[in-house]
């Protein structure tokens, strides 16, 4: 199965700019389905970005983050060709992870 995560990381002037798009419903727990039943909250709780074993960014998310969440962050200390790993865990314990090369 294709990864739920799409990443683009570009280094310029010593700063790596990373954009990630994750496919996830991010149900708020407040919405109702067509028959009026509340859709239970289902959302990513934790997303971490790791470069050479060091966490460079940690996002704790709640159900108010939009469906198919987008995140952009910037960090120093990486160079072109380095790998970054993006991982997430949701409130049902599901998780996914992907590694991308910095361009």
């Amino acid at each position: 199965m294709a990864s739920s995560i799409r990443v683009r990381a570009v280094e310029s002037g010593g700063i790596t700019s990373l954009k990630a798009l994750v496919r996830h419903p991010m149900d708020s727990g407040f919405a109702k389905d067509s028959s009026g039943n509340v859709i239970p909250a289902y959302f990513i709780q934790l997303l971490t970005i790791t470069h050479q074993g060091k966490e460079v960014f940690v996002a704790h998310w709640g159900p108010a983050v939009s469906k198919d969440p987008f995140l952009e962050c910037r960090f120093k200390g990486a160079k072109k060709g380095d790998e970054v790993t993006i991982s997430w865990v949701d409130n049902k314990g599901k998780s996914d992870s992907t590694t991308a090369k910095i361009g």
């Binding site: 060091k54 960014f57 108010a64 983050v65 969440p69 987008f70 952009e72 962050c73 910037r74």
Partner: peptide, 17 residues
Amino acid sequence: AAAFDIPEGTVPFVSNR
């Protein structure tokens, strides 16, 4: 909505929806 940890070396910037 979201709480981010910014480790040393990370630019204090974030964009989210």
